[in-house]
Design a protein around this nucleic acid. Structure first.
Length: 566
RNA sequence: UGGGGGAUCGUCUAGCGGUAGGACAGCAGACUCUGGAUCUGCAUGCCGUGGUUCGAAUCCACGUCCCCCAGCCA
């Protein structure tokens, strides 16, 4: 373990909090993770969760889970449930501190009344369109609403009637009276409450027909919960003056907001709106499609919580707009799985091999190590017999330069078994396709080496045909073909950057019998190929695997360089 | 052009007036019953221009570029 892993990280947020504790501005640390239940959590949220919960834990404080559920039009219990599941899976715990902005609706309403009484809020009858027009532009000040100077009594009466449901959606809003000329648009009399008769709220049902805007709910919710540090993303920087204004006008406890850059990942979109589009329009199978950057998708793909937490630690925290290379995420998974995933042999594109000099009905159980990185993982027996399957790609009729594997006349080692030499190639008479290899084995080479000292340049994996378990394997590639999917050609959207080959399903694979009955979620390494995870689609009759991530592949590099050179 | 932020290897990120470091990616090699893992080495960076200073990524000035904000979304 290195120093950077043992000593507390020194990003600007932790430094600021340490300073606040030292100066006495706050005596403790209490953060919160505040999702809106309008979609599934993704890897970007994992960063926020790791910061919110991580910072609290490091300073011996607490972190609440609070749903900012102020817009019933977009929210649903399906999302609140999935969010809880994902946070728990990641390994964080809010104990009993599960809150909802909707828990505070009554209090928030009283806050609004308080501001009306102070002459700091008013009911505006203008249409949404009118409000927008009168807000001004980036360079021109806004125009005051003709209703801005209504009496406190009239405002009180109107607001109460809004609550009682006397007005239709959009008829009126409650606005803060701040400054229509402010350079900060958020301060040009922002809307505090709007009327929404439908649909019912997932928690408060039909009780309310007016709902606070996020900006009027968030800061006060933090205040009510006694949050010391409200950590959020950069786009809320210019909302901070507004939150401070509310808290100050209301005379309530003030948290400190600190903003950090949200995560961007190459070849990925991380926006709930865009991810929802992929789901609703059927570009993926659902929120948990293994190609999705959602936590449920990554989990199904085979990502471990540990690897995602490591990733979040490594990317750091700063205020710079940044895009992390997805290769780092993949690296974190490999690193984790290398230590813990049992090795097995699985043949993805089978090529039949007959060992001519191996007895017809003989079967040997050969010893195979489960994980060379972990002696405690033990060993297993793998059945070997006369007819095997090897990987199609491990044979070339005309081997290119630097290709070490099987070819006519060449000898290789079958992992944990024998040296075999290719002595014949059987082809389909019609297509010319190689359908079978005839090989001979050297009985003296069991254990991996030849008594005469001869070497082979390569070891390949295999499964015994008679013992093989059939399986389906899904190979995934990045969902988008371009590094930044948000940059699309004129007139086209991010969908035009979708990678048409993001999934390849191999229906006729074979895996070694040790895998029979493996349960969904089971993770293993198919030697020489990658890490694979049993998918929930598996049935007792047929296993289905997802490729979580490929192993690093030197040969693939050599080959693609050769292809590029020619 | 109003307001708010930000610029350090290809990508993330350290640095807080005293030799610009780490990780990923890349390249080269060693080792290997996984062309895996591991190990070794290499290359690449302070947005620009002035100034202060013995000494500047760091302090100051002036520029330049990038991001966010005109939802009754969050």
């Amino acid at each position: 373990m290195t120093a950077s892993e043992t000593s507390p990280s020194s990003d600007f947020i932790r430094a600021a909090i340490a300073e606040d504790l030292k100066s006495g501005r706050y005596q403790l640390v209490h953060t919160r993770f505040p999702p809106e239940p309008n979609g599934y959590l993704h890897i970007g949220h994992a960063k926020a969760i790791a910061i919110d919960f991580g910072v609290a834990a490091e300073f011996g404080g607490l972190c609440n889970l609070r749903y900012d559920d102020t817009n019933p039009v977009k929210e649903d219990v399906e999302y609140v449930d999935s969010i809880k599941e994902d946070i728990r899976w990641l390994g964080f715990d809010w104990n009993s501190r599960e809150f909802y902005a909707s828990d505070y609706f009554e209090e928030l309403y009283e806050f609004a009344v308080q501001l009306i009484k102070k002459g700091k809020a008013y009911v505006d009858d203008q249409s949404a369109e009118k409000v927008r027009l009168n807000r001004g532009t980036l360079t021109e000040p806004g125009v005051a609403s003709p209703y801005r100077d209504r009496s406190v009594a009239e405002n009180l009466d109107l607001f109460e009637r809004m609550r009682r449901g006397e007005f239709p959606d959009g008829a009126r809003v409650l606005r803060a009276k701040i400054d229509m000329a402010s350079g900060n648009l958020n301060l040009r009399d922002p809307v505090m409450y709007r009327i929404l008769h439908n649909p019912p709220h997932h928690r408060t049902g039909e009780k309310w027909c007016i709902y606070p805007m996020y900006d009027f709910a968030h800061g006060q919710s933090d205040s009510i919960e006694g949050i010391t540090h409200s950590l959020c993303s950069l786009e809320y920087e210019d909302h901070r003056p507004l939150y401070d204004w509310f808290v100050s006008e209301l005379g309530i406890y003030a948290p400190r907001q600190i903003e950090f850059a949200r995560l961007n990942l190459s070849y990925t979109v991380l926006s709930k709106r865009l991810l929802r589009r992929l789901v609703s329009d059927g570009y993926v199978r659902g929120w948990d499609d293994p190609r999705m950057p959602t936590l449920s998708g990554l989990r199904r793909r085979g990502y471990t919580a540990e690897s995602i937490r490591t990733f979040c630690d490594r990317i750091g925290v700063s205020k710079v707009d940044s895009t992390v290379d997805i290769a780092l995420l993949e690296h974190c998974l490999r690193e984790d799985l290398n230590k813990r995933a049992p090795r097995v042999m699985g043949v993805l594109r089978p090529l039949r091999v007959v060992i001519e000099n191996y007895p017809e009905d003989k079967v040997e159980g050969l010893d195979a190590v489960n994980n060379p990185e972990d002696p405690a993982a033990g060993a297993r027996k793998v059945p070997f017999s006369r007819v095997l399957y090897i990987e199609r790609d491990d044979f070339r009729e005309v081997p290119p330069p630097k290709y070490y594997r099987l070819a006519p006349g060449r000898e290789v080692r079958l992992r944990y078994a024998y040296f075999v030499k290719c002595v014949g190639v059987v082809k389909d008479e019609q297509t010319g396709e190689v359908v079978e290899l005839r090989c001979t084995y050297d009985p003296e080479t069991l254990g991996g080496s030849a008594p005469d000292g001869r070497k082979v340049k390569s070891t390949i994996h295999w499964v015994s045909a008679a013992h093989a378990v059939p399986a389906e394997v899904r190979l995934y590639d990045r969902l988008f073909a371009t590094e930044n999917p948000n940059v699309a050609p004129e007139g086209e959207g991010f969908l035009s950057n979708l990678n048409p080959n993001s999934i390849e399903v191999l229906a006729d694979c074979y895996v070694e019998p040790a895998l029979a009955g493996a349960l969904p979620g089971f993770l293993c390494q198919f030697e020489r190929q990658g890490y694979f995870c049993v998918d929930p689609d598996s049935t007792p009759a047929k296993l289905a695997f997802n490729r979580s991530v490929q192993l690093r592949d030197e040969w693939a590099k050599i080959e693609s360089k050769a292809a590029a050179a020619s």
